[in-house]
Simulated assay, not measured.
Amino acid sequence: MDDEARATGLDPARERAFREPGAAIRAARDRGAPLHPRLDSGGHGTDLYGPTYAALDLGTNNCRLLVARATHDGFRVIDAFSRIIRLGEGITASGRLGTPAIERAVEALKICRDKMRNRGVTRARLIATEACRRAENGGEFLTRVRDQVGLDLEVVDRETEARLAATGCTPLIDPQADGAILFDIGGGSSEIVRLGNSEAARHGPPVPDLRDWISLPVGVVTLAERHGGIVVTHGVFEAMIAEVSSHIAPFAAAQRGHDPLRVHLLGTSGTVTTIAGVHLALRRYDRRRVDGSWMDDAEVTGVMQRLLAMSYDERAANPCIGFERADLVLAGCAILEAIRRTFPCARLRIADRGLREGMLVQMMRDDRIWAEGRPQ
């Protein structure tokens, strides 16, 4: 692979379109790809058009990829990948990414690279988050990924994480509410965002009305490593909640005066999707039933009490948890409980979407994919 292609793992001819806003549109037009959809009788675009986009999120716990093409009012995913890699395993104690974790991440990223190549991706954003921000050897890891895998990862700051999550989840805000408290419980950090209710866009998804945000320096991996995740007593659980609450306090003080009954919680993370799956008694996880579902306060409390009463083996045996999450799910519940105690909203909406969807929407907006008239 030559130097020009190394940054993305794509053919050199695709490199400029891969990074540059608008170039992917021009490349698709040159190939004769339709830039605007045909509308069905219902007025909603169902055809795919324009270039092929990819969004990759390398987090502290997961490596996730979405490949998508635009529709009239959003996009349709044509390929996806998700794997728990625990890149940030042990970073709390050592301050470094461990060799086994790096190997797991590299192998997962190779799969993502191949999927992007096979799908003909011409525009992508590839981000890394808290583990790479925090690790002493984060730069060495990024160099290895660039040289061995051919992907050039962008380490984003916490504000970017919050804004991308808001962009990805804004379509799930109840239009009858005054907005939402969005939270994204990650492996190494967690973001909370105060969102107003956005007006529907004429073209494409709604634009988020971001009022305020905070990033907490705690996630499920770091919290479980400090307090333990296999045997979690009520005392340990409360200690986790207290730690998280201390980080939320400054943000909560700035939100005084907002009526929690006029907004709802909007959660995006493995924690909330797991809670929803357990609540729905799914025999296997089903995104179609989870994404966009609602739970009231009593239902969330009931599931968390059930999880806290389970042994590690019982949690691992649950089809919506499994061995990969069994030692992390209660740390996630503690973060969620700290948020619920701070913002006692009556309802929680579950989002099986977030950073990747936010990146896709942002790239498509930058390319004017939903603009009236043919993009230039």
Rank of each mutant, 00 (worst) to 15 (best):
E4I: 15
G9P: 08
D11C: 07
P12A: 15
R14N: 13
R26I: 11
D30L: 15
G43R: 02
T46K: 12
L48M: 08
G50M: 03
T60A: 00
N62T: 10
F81E: 03
G88H: 06
I91P: 01
T92D: 10
A93M: 11
V121P: 05
T122E: 09
I127N: 06
T129M: 13
E130W: 13
A131H: 09
C132I: 14
E136K: 13
F141R: 02
D147W: 04
D157G: 11
E159F: 06
A162H: 05
A162L: 13
A166F: 00
D178W: 04
L182V: 06
I185R: 00
S189N: 03
S189E: 04
S189A: 07
V193D: 05
R194S: 03
L195A: 13
A201Y: 01
A201D: 11
R202H: 07
D209S: 08
H227N: 12
I230G: 10
V231A: 15
F237I: 05
A242V: 15
V244I: 14
H247R: 13
A249I: 04
L261S: 07
L265R: 11
S269T: 08
S269G: 10
G277K: 01
Y285S: 14
D297H: 08
E299L: 09
L307W: 09
L307R: 04
S311H: 08
R315V: 14
R315K: 11
C320F: 09
V329W: 05
A331S: 14
L336W: 13
A338L: 08
R349E: 00
R353S: 09
E357Y: 03
M359Q: 10
A371T: 10
Q376N: 11
